[in-house]
Amino acid sequence: MKVFVTGASGYIGSRLVASLVTDGAEVVVGSRTPDRLRTFDWHDSVTTVRLDVTDADSCRDALGASSVDVAYYLVHAIGESGYRRTDLDSARHFAEAARDAGVGRIVYLGGFVPEGEELSEHLASRAEVGEALQVDGIEVVWLRAAIVIGAGSTSFEMMRYLADRLPVLPLPTWLDKPVQPIAVDDVVYYLRATADESVPAGAYDIAGPEVLPYRDLVFAYVRAARLHRLGVPTPPVPTKLAGFVIGRLIPVPGLLADDLVQSLVNSMTASEKRIERYVPDPDGGLTGVDDAMRRSLLGAGHPRSVSRNPDSLRLADSDAEWTGGDVRTIRRYGADLFGEDGWKLMESLGAGAVLYSWPIAPVVRTNLDVAASVVGTVSARVRSLLHR
């Protein structure tokens, strides 16, 4: 089977490509800037083509020249202004181009669609994309999931930063809503399984084995990280306000954090289990919350390349720069300042044990960010004066 992957530079897409390549699949990867894919260790094992899903002609050119059987649609513009319209138009461009190119199936990963609830902007957009991909002449498998657990996942990183940085965790009433998270290794498993024609086209909920309130999910991280945190119930703060504040407390891009927080008002549990008829559980069963949290915290200081990572739940060195928590950032700053070997020596002498610990790590990280910002501003000002 020859497959086409969009969103390959993203968190889930990069892990999907690594899994496909490891098993010897023939993979074509589409990207706006194919040269940037060289940062991934699977780059030389795939075919790269230029693809801009916002451009119908680009979709036709990329898919028409690729001759693939299955296309994975994993792109979205969340965190950008006007992303809902952009995502809807992009899905239509891609689906029509895939149909015209003779692609047999599109596999799309979206979010749950809780019945009887008004959807947040983010979830409404994900649902619209699922509908827009369904054009005559092509099969679509629409996988719907809640929070994805794994180091590098935006939802996990938000939990990590908030729990690491706040000794007292506010618990608004909407954190009582139930959620059924899924580990990223299980997401990749389902993505691969549903490419096969033995799974009928349609929409399927995929989820981990546990349902729990959002607040308990946060404290599952607290336990795994061996932190001591106090949870304090608070009035029902509007999620828009909470998203605005959270986006300024942590280094996750502000608009992205805001969009995701506003989805917390929705119940995010599987409404059906039809996927079990066609796809058996992976060997060893689906990953539970506590196990997922534990595995996500391993190797944060020294992330490996995505294909050589011993566990897809661990952080990869190609994950977004703001991922990995304060430990990864402090280590990166230290390696830049003293050199990789120099920082390793400092770590061996105990510097890491001090600088990476709470509450020191958040303070160091924040001041490093400020220092970098000041240095950048001063440097720009000096360059400006020199060129006058």
Rank of each mutant, 00 (worst) to 15 (best):
S9N: 15
Y11D: 00
L20G: 01
R32S: 01
P34Q: 07
D35V: 13
R38F: 11
V49A: 03
L51N: 02
A65F: 14
S67T: 14
V68W: 10
H76D: 01
G79E: 02
H93E: 07
A97M: 07
A98Q: 03
V103D: 08
L109Y: 01
F112G: 01
E117N: 12
A124C: 12
R126M: 07
L133P: 00
L143E: 05
R144A: 12
I149T: 01
A151V: 02
G152T: 02
L162T: 04
R165K: 15
L166M: 10
P172T: 13
T173D: 09
L175C: 09
L175I: 09
D186C: 04
V188A: 08
Y189P: 02
V199Q: 00
A201H: 10
P213Y: 01
A224R: 04
P236Y: 09
F244C: 08
L249V: 05
L260Y: 13
V261A: 07
L264T: 13
V265Y: 15
E276V: 08
L286V: 04
V289A: 00
V289L: 01
D290K: 00
D291G: 03
R294A: 11
G301D: 00
E321H: 12
T329Q: 15
G334D: 02
G334Q: 06
G350D: 06
G352E: 05
G352P: 03
Y356I: 05
W358V: 15
V363I: 14
V378L: 15
V382D: 04
S384V: 07
L385K: 11
